[in-house]
Structure formats: structure tokens, C-alpha cells
Design a protein around this nucleic acid. Structure first.
Lengths: 129, 129
DNA sequence: TATCTGTACTATTTGTGTTAGTACAGTTGA
DNA sequence: TCAACTGTACTAACACAAATAGTACAGATA
């Protein structure tokens, strides 16, 4: 479910943040669902517990999850706000990428073809972002 | 013309690479045009000559520029291949970004609106990519 | 009470980007 | 010819962020 790619240039804790936020927005992780403990997830992914905690800490700051000391970390009960926030975030990243595409000489039609390709083919993808 | 943003997380040498490649693809830098010398550009941008050289070295490896030892660095005479290569590169980045947008719940129509926004408004942009 | 849980903290390591400095050979123009 | 450019190569040092290692303590739970 939750994965990291050591070859990716993006820091592990950021991968975790985006990964879990996406799973929450998609509803794959349900509100109030219990997340793996810091130590357990660290063991599963073979990375340091401090790195997990750093990700959880940031996710709590973003209100994607909440923590009950001694109990664990849980997905936020209010996902609507998170979803809107995520859509704005992805939209901004997409805008700069589209401007680069325009500079590279890609036509509006080529981009729409690309969109249709992504939206029609219901293929699973490894990476997001 | 050639600029860098110290606040950007992207390494300076990568900014230079993308910056110059874009200028070449756009035709703002013409084929066989003389680029600033390593030391001169370093002085202009107030960064280390080694950083400039690193960027030039990679640009030569990508055949975006060529170097004549003792004379200087010049934009490649063959820009068509570079342009196609750049379009593939930007297209792939865009694809992963679109997949993230889909995961976030953005509709196909919302994305087309975003494209139209980018392609209609002929506004200059600071960042690319 | 043993064993989970989150949390906090310091120290260390690692990798990458950047700077600093030097050196040498090819090119150019006065 | 020679001074002043040019690219290129190299080592050393520095800066910073990410990640690891280890310890500690309080709350929750069965």
C-alpha cells in the first residue's frame, strides 16, 4: 500500500507525505483509519523510524492525519478540505508543467491527446507526481 | 537572458541546463550562436565557474551545444533533433503530472480549462518546469 | 506489568551541490 | 611574439539536507 522508491530524487519523507495524502484523497485510506505505527512502517519499508515520524508530523500539520499519543496515527475525519487543497496543489504544479510544454512547442491539441490517453486508459501507474 | 533562482530547490547547474535548452528550442539562441564564456557567465550570475562548466558539459553531452577548446561554446547547428527530444522529455513529465491530477480527482474538463488558460493568456512566466 | 504507542532529543553519517584555487593547452588579436 | 582570452581538468574544502543510530520518557492497552 504505502511504498517508497529509493532511486527517486525526492526525499523519502516527501514521498511518504504525497503517497499517504493521495491514498486519503482517493478514499483508499478511510477517515479515522489506523495507520501503521512509526516503528512498524519503518520495519516494513526498511527505513529509519525518524523518517516515518517526520512524514507523519508533516501530515498532521497539514491536517491529513491526526495522532493520539500512545494510540497511533489516524486518517483525518474531514477529507473534503484536504481534497480541495490537494487539487489546488496539483493544479499549480500542472500549470508550470504546461507552460514548459508550451515553450517546448507542444500544441494544445497534442496536450489534449495526452490527457485523453491518461484518462481513457485505466492503467495502474507506479509513480504519482 | 540566462538567469538562475537561488531560492529554487533545483540545483543551479540544472536550472542552467533547462534554461539554455529552452532558449535554444525557442530559437532565442540561434544555431552556432556564441554562448558566454564560463568565466564571464559566472561573473554575471555571481556563481562559481565550475558550476557553469558543469552545465555546459552536460549540454554538450546532450548535443544542445558544442565546444571549441580555446574558442568557446556554441549552440548546436541541429536544433530539430533537440526539439523533438525536449518535447518527449516534457511530455513524459507532463504525463506523470496528469496522472497525479487524475488521482486528485480533477476532471478532464478542468484540465482542458487549465490548458486553455495557459495557451490563451500570452503572459510571460518566470519559471519553466 | 509487559508491551505496545507517539514524541523528543543529540550525534553521526552520507550524498550532493557549490565554492575555491591552481594548472595547462588552444585561440585570438594587437 | 605575447598578453589575454578561451575550454578543460583536477584536488580540496565547505554547506546543507536527508537519513541513520541510539536513547529516553510518557500515555495507552491487554
Amino acid at each position: 500500500m504505502i511504498t517508497v522508491d529509493m532511486r527517486d530524487r525526492k526525499p523519502i519523507y516527501e514521498q511518504l507525505i504525497d503517497n499517504i495524502r493521495t491514498l486519503a484523497v482517493q478514499g483508499i485510506l478511510q477517515p479515522d483509519e489506523h495507520l501503521p505505527s512509526v516503528r512498524q512502517l519503518a520495519a516494513e519499508l526498511a527505513i529509519n523510524p525518524n523518517t516515518i515520524q517526520k512524514a507523519y508530523q508533516e501530515l498532521e500539520r497539514q491536517h491529513v492525519i491526526y495522532s493520539l499519543p500512545g494510540r497511533g496515527n489516524f486518517i483525518s475525519g474531514d477529507i473534503r478540505g484536504i481534497t480541495e487543497q490537494e487539487q489546488r496543489r496539483v493544479g499549480e504544479l500542472l500549470r508550470t508543467q504546461l507552460q514548459a510544454a508550451k515553450k517546448a512547442g507542444l500544441t494544445r491539441e497534442a496536450l489534449i491527446t495526452l490527457i485523453d490517453d491518461v484518462y481513457h486508459h485505466a492503467q495502474n501507474v507506479e509513480k504519482e507526481e
